[in-house]
Write a protein that binds this DNA or RNA. Sequence first.
DNA 1: CCTAAACTGAAGGCGAGGTTCCGTTTTGTT
DNA 2: AACAAAACGGAACCTCGCCTTCAGTTTAGG
Lengths: 176, 176
Amino acid sequence: MRADARRNRELITTTALDLFAEHGAAVSMEEIARAAGLGVGTLYRHFPDRQALLESIALDTLRGLLKFGLTTDAADLSRWQALQLLVEHCAGLPMALIKSMSASLSLHPELLELQRNLDTLFERIAEQAQLEGTLRRDISPREVVGLLNVAVCRPGARAGDHLTTVILDGLRSTAP
Amino acid sequence: MRADARRNRELITTTALDLFAEHGAAVSMEEIARAAGLGVGTLYRHFPDRQALLESIALDTLRGLLKFGLTTDAADLSRWQALQLLVEHCAGLPMALIKSMSASLSLHPELLELQRNLDTLFERIAEQAQLEGTLRRDISPREVVGLLNVAVCRPGARAGDHLTTVILDGLRSTAP
DNA sequence: CCTAAACTGAAGGCGAGGTTCCGTTTTGTT
DNA sequence: AACAAAACGGAACCTCGCCTTCAGTTTAGG
């Protein structure tokens, strides 16, 4: 593979990642191309169609997130800190894209698998945080994960922004 | 105006209101017609085009909200209670629709006016709540209003749902 | 300098949703 | 009951934006 091709493929991926994180999953191929300073044709040279690009990014993102999740889970942290760390990490990712793919990803086994594993992981940590007494108990772990999804799938979500902070504070146990 | 026409106009408005509150502003005319049990043609008999329907609903909603807001503001409540009441009220409204219209409503003076008044009202109450010591002080009133917008413009938001609760709890002052 | 790989962006195709229109049904009146 | 005007229904039409293609041009690498 030629050097410029490799460079451009990388450029497309990172540009698209940023745009999806910022504006949600509805970004058009032309917008991505323009933002990357390339022609649309170049996108199609690297990814046969839009779906392929989306899948590639979703896979990369979820693989990375799961890895980060497992590391964090195994780290010597309070469950609250672990949860907080994970949420902040998600806030910089194109989660809206991934959510929007959930509908049609029944065909892609790995995406399905990754998503199941992540859900389970988040839910388990939330449950442990409740036992630990740091996460409020009047909401079920499953629903906590749902709330965090809303916080994090919002287009324009960024790590450390105020809404994320407020939601985390709101989830903190008020009866210590 | 014939009785059935009056009934159907009302039916369209309430159905559309529900759908917008539940699914956001992108609901199609056909979906509204189907949900109301009417043909698309009937929608166009009552509203010349989509824009007219949207405007009508937005106007009704904002007029009602402002009225409720002023009443609440004047009531004998702590500023925190007032804010909470207002937010819970908004959560049942098609706020996503209204937000999506903000871009193109420069042409409609009354909508613009209503929105300005509401912003001012919310901001003032937030500011007073901070002085009162019930609303956290590390976020500016303007940004508080922005956060509440996110909470409330989410498709599917309902009064008393868990995300609204969590965000309100997160906004509550932690240094009493 | 040459060739194959890579790039460009205008043109084509397609689907989703808004809008129209006319035959059919309902309402209210004589 | 019969009639005229008003209202309704929904298939057909139209528009617009976006995905995708492709023939001509540029560039990397030997």
